[in-house]
Design a protein around this nucleic acid. Sequence first.
DNA 1: CTACAAGCTCTAGCGACTAGAGGATCAAGC
DNA 2: GCTTGATCCTCTAGTCGCTAGAGCTTGTAG
Lengths: 151, 151
Amino acid sequence: MAFSIGTLSRRAGVKVPTIRYYEQVGLMPSPPRTDGQQRRYGEAEVARLNFIRHARELGFEVDAIRELLAMSAQPEESCAEVDRLARRHLAEVEQRIARLVSLRTELQRMVAECGHGRVGECRVIQVLADHGECDHDHDRARSGSSGFVEA
Amino acid sequence: MAFSIGTLSRRAGVKVPTIRYYEQVGLMPSPPRTDGQQRRYGEAEVARLNFIRHARELGFEVDAIRELLAMSAQPEESCAEVDRLARRHLAEVEQRIARLVSLRTELQRMVAECGHGRVGECRVIQVLADHGECDHDHDRARSGSSGFVEA
DNA sequence: CTACAAGCTCTAGCGACTAGAGGATCAAGC
DNA sequence: GCTTGATCCTCTAGTCGCTAGAGCTTGTAG
C-alpha cells in the first residue's frame, strides 16, 4: 500500500528531487518514514502531487498553489477566493503575452530590415544602439519596477 | 568630462548595482578609477550601456548581448551572425507566446466555468485536481526538459 | 546474504539582478 | 580648511523553482 518516493515520482510525473523540494517548501506533507528514514506515500499524495504539477504547468506560482491547496481542503467555503486567484493569474498571463507580442513586432521589424550586408549597416545593430530608431514603447518613464522583459 | 557611476546610471537608465553587475559579467568594461577607487566613465560607456539596456528590454540574454556587442565592434564583417542571433531570439519569443496563449485559453475556460458556488463544486479546483478534465496539452510525454511553464 | 538500485542529507549552482551592511570618498557650502 | 551628507566602494546573501552532485545508507531481488 505505501510506496517509495520513486514510485510516487513515476505515478505523478514529477522528479524525485522536486518532490523533496516541494516537501521543503511546504507544498507536500512530511510523510511517514521507514525505520531507515525512507519516505512512504499513499494515494492521497499522488492526487496532491498531480494537482501541484497541473497548477505549475498552468504557470501558478508556488505561493498561489499553497493557497489553492488550502482552499481545496475547505470544500464548503465559497470559491470566490479561488476565482480571484485564477483571474489574477490569467491577468498576469495576458500581460506577459501583450509584452511578448510587442517584443515580437519589434524583432520582426529588425530582422526584416536587415539588408544582410556588413555589420556597419545592419539595422539590427542600429536599432539596438539607438533607442530612437525603435517604435517599441519600452520606456524609461512608465515602469517603476525594472521595465525589463521577465515575460 | 569623466563622470561617476551615478551619472552614468541616470544617463542610461540603468541602476547603479546593475552597472557593477554588468562589469562583473563582462558586458561593461572595467573603467578607470579615481585615487579613491571610484569608477569614472565617458560617453562611449553611455552608448554601450544604452545598447545593453535596449537589448535586455527586447529580451536578449546576457550571453547573446555579449556576442552582439562583439559583432558591433567589427562593422566590416558580414552581419549574417547578427541576423542569426536575432532570428533565433525571435523564434524563442514566438514559442513563449504560443505557450502562454495556450495557458491563457485553459485559464479562461476554467474561470468561465466557475459557478461561484462552493469550493467543492469549483471547476477551477476540479480541473487542477483532475488532469483528464483539461484540454491543455501540457504533456508528460513530449517534454524532455521539465515541460513546465518558464515562459 | 550479497549486490546494487534507489534512497538519504547537504551544499552549491542557474540567470539576472536586488538588498543591505559597514565603511570610504567626493563636492559643496561655510 | 573643515564639515556635512550624498554618493561611492566591496562583500555577502537573497530572489524563484528547481537541478546536480558528493558521499553515505537502506531496501529488495535473486
